[in-house]
Amino acid sequence: MYKKDRDSKDTGAKRGRDRDEDSRYDADMEDAMDDGGGRRGRKFSSSNKKKSCRFTAGEEDINNISYKNPRFLSTFMTEHGKIVPRRVTGNCAFVQRKLTTEIKRARQLALLGFVAIGPNASY
């Protein structure tokens, strides 16, 4: 009798927690979709497509990731100058690490900004 009660309570609590997690995932998914699709959104999207790294897939040349190409690097930054996480871009860890290094190098040479400095910023 007691045991049964406890069991039912447990499952109830569990269900509640699951629901919480679900709602959190939903929020994440919405965030990711705002940024143009993300990995977490995949879990709930019907298309079930996985983002693969465009550099290792051969769509882009990995040698282009260089501080000498600030305009290319800026495609991996937000308009405020932040580095876009790989959860959004779908880059693999190796590429993301390289990208981060090169963006930081470009920042040192004032080719890219640390923050957006207004409408006159040309990059």
């Binding site: 040698n63 000498k68 305009r71």
Partner: peptide, 8 residues
Amino acid sequence: GTAMKREE
């Protein structure tokens, strides 16, 4: 390496 730079 320099191709992109020229473009830039």
